[in-house]
Nucleic acid binder design. Structure first.
Lengths: 339, 339
DNA sequence: CTGAAAGCGCTAACAC
DNA sequence: GTGTTAGCGCTTTCAG
């Protein structure tokens, strides 16, 4: 077995509790013994056992990550590694570890979360997605277990701490940008309406058009759940309309890449024939042909703030509910042109 | 506090140990009491406390994940979510949880691993990368802590269980494929030579050329560490050679996308002017223009087998060292043409 | 400022 | 088959 607190205590000629206090860096301990103990720890190569500490202190210093069901194609999106990185940075700063959960289906995910929570493996949870009706959220909320969501919860927005962009405004601005370039026939290509982010963006899109007195058309709104097959057709249909759009707002760079691809096959040039603004501004956006004008939503910060605020909530039980809005900004590249 | 084993015991009129046995599904316990206990658990809404169990049994049922330092651009690569998914599936099957570690630098990563291991937070570790000189591997090996690596370790290959593709053969075949199309001037674009995978593939490339009696040229070998800036130049230089290559093998789809991009800017058409074979076959490969001919390396399986074999090793201490080779296959799309 | 002792919730000999 | 009893390694009153 590894070296324990007892052995350190013996070596330093103190009680185990004193060693424990040194670890916790208790203020009421003399510099002298502190030093003595530290030396002993050093010499024995002591490392605290987290599990034991967790059991005694009823806290794990770990936060749980709930990913979308891995069946989802969403998972392929570079969005995730990036939020992860942000979360990880925030956690790291406060010495929290990360515990992951994935399930293939929604039910599996819920199950895994229950295990994690009831098994007391984590002190809090961050949800990396936000669906319209979500069992995980209900479960967590009901048990009053600390959690934050990346994105906007569908229900109880006021009672759930979440980190989000102002997706409504972001999409409104993106659309206005296109309007400013002279476009009136602007289509919206978004993901599943099950995702709150899609809903918000759709609303922003509609608002921009309405404000500019451009009539909305149902044919101009497509939900492209599947990045590939489904998308191809949807875009093709869109372009076959008598009055086909001259510009597109696309909910995600990854999707936009698919769109770009389809357009190319149809012999439609970007930005000459059609303009595109997309979202997220991942590395992909600058590597596509043409490089995409994309709304940067600061994914890293989204993650960073999520773990930060979760930890605050964990450490201070009556931390107020917060809504943290991460800024966004349009990065102009070469996928848009004036009409 | 939550309901414990004791309360269940009391309610079912048995000893705590009996309840424990029921949880462990011990064979030598009567069906009758088993049922009685289960009912009590049900009624009280009992959930075992993992932490307590871990402490008592000296095992956590969790495996640690070591990601490459997050500073690396590598992190952006869709490769990771996919291995993760595979690992997660393998872990899930055996009821293991996942614990993540990331550091910004190599040293931070090592630190995090030490914490995870010494803190007894995990029973084993899987490394999601394989670098040429790696402290994490040395550390783990020295302590004889169970681990497997995804990819091929640089040293001690025989003593470290790892899950890998036959990258040498895969790249040789990819190169031969191009040779078969009539290409003789084939350049190699790979990642950092710090990564073992790059080394293996480079070797496979060289072998294919040698076997075909095509002289190797140093100018034809480029390491493109940075996907963007650096890459642009490297490719440009390559194409400015008097005898520029007519085909490229690229170590990764993501990189290939960058290459495609640069080529386009230079007015060089794929596959008319130059052919490209890339690696990994992620979703990206079919979404690029043109869709990439790419070697599918079964990333998901790479992850799946990694967690599988790690768990075996954890559960059976004298499980032999294994080398697991995941198959690959060339997926033809539209980035190659006959010369 | 430091020590003694009682747990945290569960497992694992060892009895019977 | 089931109960008793020690711990696992640490934290945390409570004394002093």
């Amino acid at each position: 077995m590894a070296v324990t607190i007892k052995e350190v205590a013996k070596m330093a000629n103190v009680a185990p509790s004193t060693v424990s206090r040194v670890i916790a860096n208790s203020p009421r301990i003399s510099e002298k013994t502190k030093k003595k103990v530290k030396e002993a720890m050093e010499q024995l190569g002591y490392h605290p056992n987290f599990i034991a500490r967790s059991l005694a202190s009823q806290s794990t210093q770990a936060i749980g990550l709930v990913m979308p069901s891995s069946g989802d194609v969403v998972f392929q999106n570079p969005f995730f590694p990036t939020v992860l990185q942000g979360i990880s940075e925030g956690a790291h700063e406060k010495n929290y570890a990360l515990h992951m959960t994935t399930g293939k289906s929604e039910d599996e995910t819920l199950d895994a979360v229950i295990h994690m929570v009831q098994g007391r493996r984590v002190d809090g949870v961050v949800l990396l997605y936000s669906k319209v009706e979500d069992k995980v959220i209900s479960y967590l909320k009901e048990r009053d277990f600390p959690f934050v969501v990346v994105g906007k919860p569908y229900k109880h927005v006021e009672e759930i701490t979440h980190v989000d962009n102002d997706n409504f405004r972001a999409m409104r601005e993106a659309t206005e940008y296109l309007i400013g370039l002279g476009h009136h026939q602007i289509a919206f290509i978004g993901g599943s309406l099950d995702l709150v982010v899609t809903v918000d963006r759709l609303l922003g899109y509609e608002r921009a058009l309405r404000d500019a007195n451009i009539p909305l058309r149902n044919e101009y709104i497509v939900q492209e759940e599947f990045l590939r097959e489904g998308g191809q057709e949807a875009v093709a249909e869109l372009m076959q309309l008598k009055e086909h759009p001259t510009a597109l707002v696309v909910a995600d760079d990854f999707m936009a890449l698919g769109v770009l691809n389809t357009l190319d096959e149809l012999g439609i040039r970007v930005p000459e024939d059609i303009s595109i603004v997309s979202f997220n501004n991942v590395l992909l956006a600058e590597m596509s042909k043409p490089p995409l004008t994309s709304v940067d939503i600061n994914i890293l910060d989204l993650g960073y703030q999520a773990s930060k605020s979760l930890i605050q909530k964990i450490e201070n039980n009556n931390e107020p509910t917060k809504r943290i809005i991460i800024s966004h900004n349009l990065v102009e590249r070469h996928s848009c042109s004036k009409l």
